[in-house]
Simulated assay, not measured.
Amino acid sequence: MERRTFLRTTVIGGSAAAFGGSLWRGAAYAAPAQPGSGPYGALRAADANGIRLPAGFSSRVIARSGRKVSGTSYTWHNAPDGGACYADGSGWIYVSNSEINPSGGAGAVRFSSSGSITGAYRILSGTRQNCAGGKTPWNTWLSCEEVDRGYVYETDPWGVKPAVRRDAMGRFKHEAAAADPVRKVVYLTEDVSDSCFYRFRPTTWGDLSSGTLEVLRMGPGTSGPVTWATVPDPSGASAATRNQVSGTKRFNGGEGCHYADGTCWFTTKGDNRVWQYDAAAETIELAYDDSLVSGGTPLTGVDNVTRTASGDLYVAEDGGNMEICVITPDNVVAPFLRVDGQSSSEITGPAFSPDGSRLYFSSQRGTSGSSSGGITYEVTGPFRS
């Protein structure tokens, strides 16, 4: 038996035996995604920006680190990372973190209804290594510090209200955040090799100034039911938050995180996995695992993640061959785009415009391989709605 086939049998079958058939809910525990034909077909030759896209799609450069954003006085930040889009009247705003230490922070670009750039500005300053984050239902941006005992900062995408540090969300090496408006919690990932998966339960939904930080617990394996336990000291002063509760589930390098339709997807870079947490059933399973892929692996170096209304999950690569891959609702994984000539970089910040017609992302270090060489792109085309 081929190694990957054996692993699949061991992981999927072993979990079934451990947790019992009554806990499995058919398609909810489907096998992890496998390579196949993507919804948009093969990638064409690279365009003038070095982006390989399917037929019908095109790219443009929105901003470059160290240069003023076209038509504005704002100099785009170094090492652009996690991002999100916000409706702004008939236009929209794209927010982007800066993963440098010190002086990280975040900036934003404003667009008109036609997609023209109408402004760019700073929304967060004086922080450290702002990696990913997450959008809240009340239209703020949670910018996360990827440093030991780092903070989460709640920022205003319009740049009007001052950013607020949210101490109650815990001090650890934060990566990404995803808000669940049904259960009124915010999920959080942690970027260390023995990380945990957290959720923050605000005292009042919409106000992150106080609440309870919880950590996920589960038995052995990669699929099955989970429980949540309160972290006694979210400040991490007495001990690292991941080491305060026994029986926590360890993850190999938490990265991107996205919630939609009752599911929170998150990635772990150390083992190239995409996980999905069923929030209603409180169960977890693998959506993708490159060690369980038959043949070539189209997705390696999993990182930031986002999702469209059609149910397609877009996963950016940190490493690999600089692709954004799509995982479809029928568990097919395929490349959506590839950036040529930037092998010393990583793809960050994928986010769709509010109408789903434009995808934004950055190459964090661009062609130079330096944090000062970041490039932020826009892709337009016939995305599935």
Rank of each mutant, 00 (worst) to 15 (best):
G211R: 00
G270I: 06
T263F: 13
R199M: 00
G270R: 08
M218G: 06
R273S: 11
D261P: 00
T263R: 12
N243L: 07
G254F: 13
V245Y: 03
T222R: 15
N243W: 08
G224R: 00
N243H: 04
F251W: 00
S223L: 09
R217F: 03
E255N: 04
F266S: 06
Y198G: 08
W205G: 00
K249Y: 11
A239C: 08
V274S: 07
D271I: 13
R199P: 03
P234A: 08
D278I: 14
V274K: 03
V231E: 01
D207G: 06
P220C: 09
Y259A: 08
Q244F: 03
L216A: 02
T241G: 00
A260H: 06
G254H: 05
W205M: 02
S209F: 09
K249G: 04
S235I: 07
S235M: 07
N272A: 14
G253V: 01
T212M: 03
K269A: 14
G211A: 07
S209R: 05
W205V: 04
G262N: 09
G253D: 08
N272K: 11
G224W: 01
T204F: 10
L213N: 01
T204L: 13
R201S: 02
G206H: 03
A239T: 11
G253A: 10
T241W: 00
G262M: 10
A229W: 10
V226D: 11
G219T: 10
S209C: 02
F251H: 03
D278M: 13
T203H: 02
A240K: 09
V274C: 07
S238P: 04
S238A: 14
G270Q: 01
K269D: 14
Q276L: 15
W275A: 09
Q276S: 13
A239K: 07
W275K: 05
Y259E: 01
T267N: 15
D261Q: 08
